[in-house]
């Protein structure tokens, strides 16, 4: 794994680039570790409180450790009427976790999200930002079995 300091310093010349740095960190670790927030604050010349404020403002960024595969269920209105609630229940049952939790083996984290812009095939989930289309409760075990 790349060192968080190298990741942040590689982007230090980008004006206002702290969010880009957070994205880069998250691509590497699936979340933004606390020590990386402190480092980013220093590199981009803001206080640690400000850096933490930015990291926690955006729902796509996480300051909590997450699993290898991050499942996000869209709950916006088009997915809602297409049966998102049943899909969430099926995923929760299949993985034995609730929304916001990570499986004990560190493999899956389940989150809710608002619209991911793939409304031609609702309901939609994303797994590590890759969309999966026309999900139904019945298809959940098969879909998740693809992630080793």
């Amino acid at each position: 794994m790349a060192n968080y300091k190298d990741i942040i310093n590689g982007l230090k010349d980008k004006q206002g680039g702290i969010i880009e740095a957070f994205h880069a960190l998250q691509r590497e670790y699936n979340y933004i570790p606390e020590e990386a927030i402190a480092e980013a604050a220093q590199v981009f010349g803001v206080s640690q409180a400000q850096a933490y404020g930015v990291a926690t403002f955006y729902s796509y960024l996480s300051v909590e450790k997450r699993g290898k595969y991050i499942i996000r269920m869209c709950e916006s209105a088009p997915c809602h009427v297409a049966g998102a609630d049943e899909v969430i229940k099926a995923i929760e049952k299949h993985l034995g976790i609730k929304v916001g939790e990570t499986t004990a083996d560190g493999k899956f984290t389940l989150e809710l999200t608002e619209c991911v812009g793939q409304c031609q095939a609702t309901p939609v989930i994303t797994v590590n930002s890759e969309p999966v289309f026309n999900v139904s409760a019945a298809k959940v075990p098969e879909i998740l079995s693809a992630y080793k």
Binding site: S76, A77, P78, E114, C115, G117, Q118, C119, Q120
Partner: peptide, 11 residues
């Protein structure tokens, strides 16, 4: 920043 639910035209 196309975040409007039900929209994917910009994509």
């Amino acid at each position: 920043d196309e975040g409007e639910p039900g929209t994917y035209k910009d994509r």
